[in-house]
């Protein structure tokens, strides 16, 4: 293993994060606060409780997941797209490093950033509503797994994209709808049964459900299933990355 190279890529990417610290932290914090104002205050005044917790409290895990998902994808896709775009990728490709090491560097940095963000949002949420985390270790496990999985997914998008539109397209057209419909703001059990079945095809449901369980021990689907689905998606992303590097897809001519 070329640990120095991993370290170099990781620190390079983190340096980029620190440079843009303000926008990368301020905007999610602001939007989370807005969600609280809109959903928590407006809707929360009508729905007082969901499965035994107040509505404001109920939506916290979903909100965190929402940001972690979108930020992981955004960070990782941009992190690898940008060197491709400006051409500095030549150096990565010509360095004595394996693909695994490249992925660890880029995906590790993107995941780190979104985990930090997730925790900041959690802290912001704690200012609005009382929070209690039943299973902190499981909470962290789900957080890390989700951050890594979706950073990998973002990495794939960043390699696939050959223009800024494509870079935005998947997050806009696929990920955001899936997260909004994934039970961030409601319990799947609240839906009519037809919708419920359709919703269960949405992978994000499992992430949010498992994450929420680690907070309040309430879940739409069993925790085992949540974990299994998350790991399954992780495996799919890893297989895709492996294929990309094996063929040099969109990286090497």
């Amino acid at each position: 293993m070329n640990y120095r190279a991993i370290r170099a890529i990781y620190l390079f990417e983190m340096a980029r994060t620190w440079r843009t610290l303000l926008q990368s932290i301020v905007s999610p914090v602001v939007s989370t606060s807005l969600y609280f104002v809109v959903f928590g205050a407006a809707i929360g005044s009508r729905i007082t409780e969901v499965e035994g917790v107040s509505y404001g409290t109920f939506i916290v895990p979903g909100l965190v997941m929402l940001s972690v998902l979108t930020q992981s994808i955004a960070n990782a896709s941009f992190g690898i797209y940008f060197p491709k775009f400006v051409g500095t990728i030549y150096e990565i490709l010509s360095a004595p490093i394996s693909y695994l090491e490249i992925v660890i560097g880029y995906v590790g940095a993107a995941a780190t950033k979104s985990i930090i963000l997730g925790l900041i949002i959690l802290a912001t949420a704690a200012l609005f509503v009382p929070l209690h985390i039943h299973h902190p270790w499981w909470m962290l496990t789900f957080l890390v797994l989700t951050a890594v999985t979706f950073s990998l997914f973002g990495f794939i998008i960043g390699i696939w994209a050959d223009g800024f539109e494509k870079l935005q397209m998947i997050p806009m057209l696929v990920v955001t709808p899936l997260t909004f419909l994934g039970g961030s703001f409601y319990s799947v059990n609240m839906l009519p049964s037809g919708w419920r079945t359709i919703t269960l095809l949405n992978p994000v449901v499992y992430l949010i459900s498992g994450f929420r369980w680690s907070f309040y021990e309430i879940a739409d689907v069993s925790v085992g299933l949540s974990l299994g689905m998350t790991l399954g998606f992780l495996a799919i992303c890893m297989a895709l990355v492996w294929w990309i590097f094996r063929t040099g897809y969109r990286l090497k001519n």
Binding site: A8, F12, A15, G87, I97
Partner: peptide
């Protein structure tokens, strides 16, 4: 191998020192 490509590909917002140090790390040198 050290490579100086034909096109100027640089990270605009890095300092000279940082980008040169980065290259050394990338090639696994202390």
């Amino acid at each position: 191998i050290g490579l100086v490509p034909q096109e100027l590909h640089t990270d605009s917002f890095e300092t000279v020192w940082a980008t040169v140090s980065f290259s050394r790390g990338l090639f696994g040198k202390p």
